[in-house]
Amino acid sequence: MTYDLLVNGKKYVVDVDGDIPLLWVLRDTIGLTGTKFGCGIAMCGACTVQVDGVPVRSCVVPVAEAAAKPITTIEAIGETAEGARVQKAWLDIDVVQCGYCQSGQIMSATAFLAANPSPTDEDIDAVMAGNICRCGTYPRIRAAIKLAAAGR
């Protein structure tokens, strides 16, 4: 069956089973590889994208559920005001190490900041607990989110 996807403002028609997770359609079928595979069970957050502005774990979202809704991935999050601010803060603090989880971190942080303009450490932890980083960039993620909030 074919599904119409609206990814980063662009329309794609994909011919896959409806239960295939959105992640693989984005990465393999469409070729947007910025969204990462980490666990496949919504445990690590590496695959986070936004559907209708809500961050979701694309590794468990069936493509059929995401069809026809606006999907934003890391490749286009910089076009939003929050996304750009978060990316800039990530650069200013030099958050990244291996970088693999950072697409997901930024997608979560962006949705978070849009709703919470002045987060505390506790607020940050409550949201970012969903995104694992094995390099341990957590202290800098906290700092960068605060910087992004301050730069509003």
Partner: peptide, 21 residues
């Protein structure tokens, strides 16, 4: 100094092995 690999790692363009196509 800032890491030289940061820009591509915050905008999704960095290519890891798993991204080879």
């Amino acid at each position: 100094v800032r890491r030289l690999d940061s820009p591509e790692k915050v905008n999704g363009t960095a290519k890891f092995g798993i991204d080879a196509r």
